[in-house]
């Protein structure tokens, strides 16, 4: 459960994100994700362990700065969980008759996926709902920007209800039937959506303000991200 809580918090914007401009907030995670995704989009290209670890270290530093040291443990647990999941999937593939990958290769691949996920969470920790709305509007996606705003607002409410529904289902029906919590949660989300529709009718969805594009602190977050991304050129395989 605490893993899930940490996972949910990884998608909540940090208060410290206000220190940075929109450009740096978008570019930092996007650069990291693009760099780490190179092997997937350009077959034949590989990223070394050192490069992956470099990116992971940098992401951990940024995430710790944004979310505080206590969350670091949660973030690392998340990374560990993804690596474990990667191993588990590979083991299943062995059972299904596929050729097993080397354990080290498996570990490195899982580590890269974890680093990509972490970079993705940085995007959500850096950008406010308003800023994402602004970006979507600029891309001509007005309706999606509103749907996104409402979804992000409902996320914490759903999460609060999740732990309640979890306790109920676990005690009522046992651990094996825990999936039955989905129905009450879905119905509760529908009720909340209806209440939110009423609230939006009376308040409206304020159009996003033009965010600050650059701030004096941008370089502190952006430059290391550029350097990590350029490490592909600097550090040979």
């Amino acid at each position: 459960m605490s893993l899930l809580r940490d996972f949910a918090y990884a998608f909540v914007v940090s208060k410290k994100a206000e220190e940075f401009g929109l450009l740096a907030k978008v570019l930092t995670p996007v650069l990291l994700i693009s760099f780490l995704s190179l092997p997937y989009v350009a077959p034949g290209l590989e990223i070394s362990t050192v490069q992956t670890l470099l990116a992971l270290t940098y992401e951990t530093v940024v995430a710790t700065y944004l979310a505080g040291s206590r969350k670091l443990v949660g973030i690392l647990k998340l990374v560990g969980m993804i690596i474990a999941l990667g191993f588990a999937l590979n083991l299943v593939s062995i059972l299904l008759g596929s050729d097993p990958a080397e354990p080290v290769t498996m570990g490195l691949r899982a580590l890269r996926v974890a680093t990509i996920v972490l970079a993705l969470t940085l995007l959500f920790q850096l950008l406010t709902v308003g800023e994402i709305k602004y970006l979507l509007l600029k891309m001509g996606l007005k309706r999606y920007s509103e749907v996104f705003a409402v979804s992000m607002a409902l996320l914490p409410i759903t999460f609060i209800n999740f732990s309640e529904a979890y306790v109920v289902a676990r005690l009522k029906l046992g651990k094996k039937n825990i999936a039955s919590l989905i129905k009450p949660l879905m119905i509760d989300s529908i009720i909340n959506s209806r209440h939110m529709a009423e609230a939006l009718y009376i308040h409206g969805i304020p159009p996003p303000l033009r965010p600050k594009l650059v701030t004096s602190k941008d370089l502190a977050i952006l430059v290391p991200a550029i350097l990590v991304s350029l490490s592909y050129i600097v550090i040979p395989l």
Binding site: V13, G130, A149, A153, I157, H195, I202, P206, P208, L209
Partner: peptide, 29 residues
């Protein structure tokens, strides 16, 4: 002219930060 505060007050907020939500709303109005 008229405003309502729902039973479920959570549903009034879009932005996660109280400051951001109220500030953006005030500027928009």
């Amino acid at each position: 002219l008229i405003q309502i505060v729902n039973q479920n007050a959570y549903t009034h907020f879009i932005e996660h930060s109280v400051h951001t939500d109220l500030y953006y709303s005030s500027i928009a109005i």
